[in-house]
């Protein structure tokens, strides 16, 4: 996981359903802040699914969810999450 960039406060995050991902990489390619990367793990079908490599970069713009042809990922702004915890979220385990 890259640690080069200065730590910023995350504005958004992503939710991923690894098992429906087909590894097309649309989300990673077209993420405006380039905060996504492939998991190192395979899902059951043998695809590397996306993970939030740079959570602090995520703006929650939602583009990954619009691009994803398999309904496997979506991004959301933290303030739009109902009953969002006040503490900064812990990102999902990266592959």
């Amino acid at each position: 996981m890259s640690q080069d960039k200065p730590v910023r406060q995350a504005k958004g995050t992503v939710f991923v359903r690894p098992e429906v991902c087909k590894g097309c990489a649309y989300c990673i390619e077209f993420c405006p802040t380039e905060c996504l990367g492939f998991s190192e793990e395979f899902n059951a079908k043998g695809y590397h699914y996306p993970v939030l490599k740079h959570p602090e970069e995520c703006t929650g713009c939602g583009l990954c969810g619009l691009y994803c042809p398999d309904f496997a990922i979506f991004g959301i702004r933290l303030k739009d999450i109902p009953q969002a915890a006040s503490e900064p979220p812990v990102p999902p385990k990266a592959g």
Partner: peptide
């Protein structure tokens, strides 16, 4: 495919959320 395998991974500590397309599918 069982619903288990369709589980969504989200940041810990956040409530479970569905893909916004799902209600339409």
């Amino acid at each position: 495919m069982s619903t288990d395998t369709l589980d969504t991974l989200g940041p810990e500590g956040l409530p479970h959320m569905d893909n916004p397309s799902l209600p339409y599918l």
